[in-house]
Design a protein around this nucleic acid. Structure first.
Length: 277
DNA sequence: CCGCGGGCCTGCGCGC
DNA sequence: TGCGCGCAGGCCCGCG
């Protein structure tokens, strides 16, 4: 699933079903995903009330009345789906973990590739938690501004595409929205980060926010179907400007979109609209 | 500290 | 129809 907009959509879908509810039990169907499930998972969650569900970058934080937080990541293929006991089909292949609420609702975590995970930490220790402590600024935070980004790029020789995928700089961007934001800001993805001009950084800052906001709106529009979705929701219904459009024509200049590899990942861009500086 | 490449997994779509 | 290949939205780790 997961870049920030999709995780945000999942969080918004889980909230009305889970916040305020009490967990009956959590059943796991294998010892681990990317990491082992916590040993104390049931100890911290049994009869616990869900006090809130939050997103930080691409992580889902489920806070419990026991002062523990479940930290979950969807990896590449993780999905949460909501069901009602008795009315829904039995578990599906790759439903590795199921959260049963006392009100009869249960939430299944499904993840074919198992790059996702579900771990736990004390709520007071969220900001020292290994994954969360190193994250950069959220795209929605005031602190993501051109001054911050420009400074972060200084001294970095790495291509701007790679820098934007670095979660320690901006948290939550993934391959799709990085490609899209670079296109909108008309920046060549191979440009060394330190060479991006201040005015380009300003444009990039705006387009990052816009691309993320648009995607959340699109995801939100399919929220009403959340209970019945396979978790993919409207993800592939987005009309991307460049992502996944190799050899198709750029909407702006009608040149074919190009695909290259950067750090082992595909980058899509328009050689005419995104010129090297 | 920085930057790269490999590894973790399954499933899908494509060409032969 | 079946098979092998390349590809997929992420992240961690180890190396130079």
């Amino acid at each position: 699933m997961p870049e920030l907009p999709e995780v945000e959509t999942v969080v918004q879908g889980l909230r009305p079903h889970m916040v305020g509810a009490t967990i009956d039990k959590i059943i796991i169907h294998r010892p681990n995903l990317r990491y082992d499930f916590p040993n104390n998972l049931n100890e911290i969650s049994q009869n616990a009330r869900v006090t809130g569900i939050y997103r930080r970058s691409k992580y889902i934080l489920i806070r419990l009345s026991t002062e523990w937080t479940i930290v979950s990541h969807l990896g590449m293929s993780g999905t949460y789906t909501i069901h009602n006991r008795g009315t829904n089909a039995p578990l599906k292949k790759h439903d590795h973990c199921v959260i049963y609420l006392t009100n009869g609702t249960y939430i299944a975590y499904n993840d074919p590739r198992r790059f996702g995970f579900l771990i736990a930490c004390k709520t007071t220790e969220e900001h020292t938690q290994k994954h969360l402590s190193v994250l950069g600024v959220e795209p929605f935070a005031d602190s993501l501004n051109s001054t911050y980004l420009y400074k972060a790029f200084q001294g970095r020789n790495t291509p701007i595409k790679t820098a934007l995928l670095n979660q320690n700089i901006v948290a939550g961007l993934g391959n799709i929205y990085v490609c899209e934001a670079l296109f909108k800001a008309r920046i060549h993805p191979q440009t060394p980060a330190k060479n991006i001009t201040k005015s380009k950084v300003t444009a990039l800052t705006e387009h990052i926010l816009q691309v993320i906001q648009d995607a959340i709106c699109a995801g939100g529009s399919s929220l009403r179907d959340f209970q019945n979705t396979d978790g993919k929701m409207g993800y592939f219904q987005h009309n991307f400007a460049v992502y996944g459009r190799e050899n198709e024509l750029c909407n702006t200049c009608k040149k074919p979109i190009v695909r290259i590899q950067q750090s082992g990942r595909s980058t899509f861009f328009c050689i005419k609209c995104q010129k090297k500086p």
